[in-house]
Amino acid sequence: MAILLPIVGQDVSVWGLIVLGLVAGLLAGFFGVGGGFLMAPLLNIVFGIPYNAAVGSDLAQMLGMSVAGTARHLGLGNVDYKLGGLMTVGNLLSIEFGARLVEALKARGTMNVGGREVHALDFYLPLAFIVLLFIVATMAFRESREALKRAPRGGIVETEASRTARRLSFPPFFTSPTSGIERLSIWVPIGLGLATGVLTGFMGVGGGFVVVPALIYGLSIPTPVAIGTSLFCILFKSAYGCFTHTLKGNVDILLALILLLGSTVGAQIGALGTRRFRGAHIRYYFSIVLYLAALLVAVKLLAKVGLLWA
């Protein structure tokens, strides 16, 4: 069954989109992240949806997913409002910058890459995805292998980075019993929010796959609180990202709603799967998924610039 997406202006298979939503939701629920890092590239690669519409519609889809997820974590007491609020301040300051980057690339039109005319957005955005996916995959792969050797199940992970972050003496400071933070400069979460906000505006990703490890290893926050707080931030940044991308004509709400049908169900099934695996095992599999996603985007990009098949 095909449906015409009015904003995108092309016919797509409804069942195909539901299955994509289901797969992304399954991965998101299983790995405790938003799944946005896979959705935008797959919408472009599998369905040929332009990157600007894929990013914008993915943010609308992510808004629905994060509302359901945050409500659940609020009930469990896993959300640190102080930490999440400070990160959100950073997010909101930088999302617009990322969204304007998309607009600037859209306005730039085509460019010559290896003798071929390629749209600037179709070149730089996948390139950014490849770099980001590769870096995070390598971090997750190394860390999970180490953790499988030594770490106990769950709990707080003390690292040199977390000790250094807590020693930073740039006032003002805050405390938070929910996360076990006795004294931390407010500039640490704001800085983290600034960095991930650009990713949200530019690439349509919630940044959970960066924020959750950063909170666990960089600030020694307990894993459930890191996941709940990250989702709380994703709710606000996806709402703002969706708002600004809608104004710019990049959101196809019909596409977002069809994806949501699959992703909400997939996320619940994925979350059930986490009960059967150790955290480090999950992160190890997660790194493999990220490597595969990076490879997929790289193959598509190389084909586009004529370095693989036409």
Binding site: A68, T246, A256, L257, L260
Partner: peptide
């Protein structure tokens, strides 16, 4: 109207599915 729709529909969907 479209901006409001793009924000309200995903939020409503998320709350209902949750």
């Amino acid at each position: 109207a479209y901006v409001v729709l793009c924000l309200a529909l995903p939020v409503a969907f998320g709350l209902l599915s949750g």
